[in-house]
Design a protein around this nucleic acid. Structure first.
Lengths: 168, 168
DNA sequence: ATTGACCTTATAGTAGCTTTATAGTTTTAA
DNA sequence: TTAAAACTATAAAGCTACTATAAGGTCAAT
């Protein structure tokens, strides 16, 4: 099977497959005389595993970790479960943070009906007043289902922003 | 006020301030003879506005948009509200998607108690079986409160992954 | 013979910063 | 006074997980 076929089978782009190989997540396939990659069913399963992990929001690093566990099947699977528990708790804190954010946005939005000039807009005024704060959420690597709440909160300096009249 | 003081006041790093200036979000300050930046209260307010927007999950591009509205205070503020409404709906769909993900992760986790070998771990087996799917959520720019559900779903190819036994 | 579909590698771009490198300036402690 | 510490400057690379683009080689069919 060549790269295009594998790509179509699993539902990814060919570049993504090459990318995973380059990142050491997918075993390098044999090559034809013309240097075309030749894939087997084993590669299909490997790739599908990677994609399923990505759908679950695991980072490439975490997938790498899982793969290392797979390579050593007699270990206890405590680490696998720990990884998942960890990930679940991240997802939960993301949900919590986003819910708080939604509340804040909705209340901000309520400060203006559409029939004003920007000058009198309660939304912009609300941002400028700014009594907002944010939960402490740890930085997560970029992956399709993950949220980021990066440096803003992680520095603990954001406190300076709360009740900011002293800035002016 | 020099850059370090401004940074401490608002709670960001000095590099971040330079970055915002470079991105055209923060007005370029005057310079001393030694080329050190000199900031005024106005810059403090500008920077605080930017950070509050970031806390609300707005992208730098969206902040830029808001700033352009501020510069034209006699416009109707419909656009401001539209931007916010849009953002709120993104946040809501992120929450929904993450909740679905959490459910999936928790049910996966339930497939293994800790006392097995990796070989028999229901978690890894669960991923390898993989009956997972994902909502269609549009791509969002990277910002501290945003989630990404990038190419995986956006291609519609993910369907191939659902009920994947045909891969092997 | 050439068009088109496929494959190759290498490199740059995305977002919002952070980090590193290299260097000049100012402040402070000995 | 001098030397170290702390601050400032610019430029460029790094982070994540890809995506896109460039420039070319290979292959089947017309």
């Amino acid at each position: 099977m060549r790269i295009g076929q594998l790509a179509q089978l699993v539902g990814v782009e060919t570049q993504t497959i090459r990318f995973y190989e380059q990142q050491g997540l997918l075993s390098p396939p044999d090559r034809q005389d013309n240097r075309y990659r030749v894939y087997t069913e084993k590669h299909g399963e490997e790739l599908a595993f990677i994609r399923r992990c990505r759908i679950l929001g695991l980072s490439l690093a975490e997938i790498h970790e899982l793969q290392s566990y797979q390579d050593d099947p007699h270990q206890p699977c405590t680490a696998v479960n720990a990884l998942l528990d960890d990930h679940i708790s991240h997802v939960r804190s993301q949900i919590t943070a986003l819910q708080a954010l939604e509340k804040q946005l909705v209340s901000l939005r309520a400060r203006c009906n559409d029939d004003r000039e920007v000058k009198a807009c309660g939304v912009l005024a609300g941002i400028s007043e700014g009594n907002m704060h944010q939960q402490q959420v740890r930085h997560q690597p970029d992956n399709p289902m993950s949220c980021r709440f990066v440096s803003l909160s992680c520095r603990g300096k954001i406190n300076h922003l709360i009740g900011l009249p002293d800035i002016s």
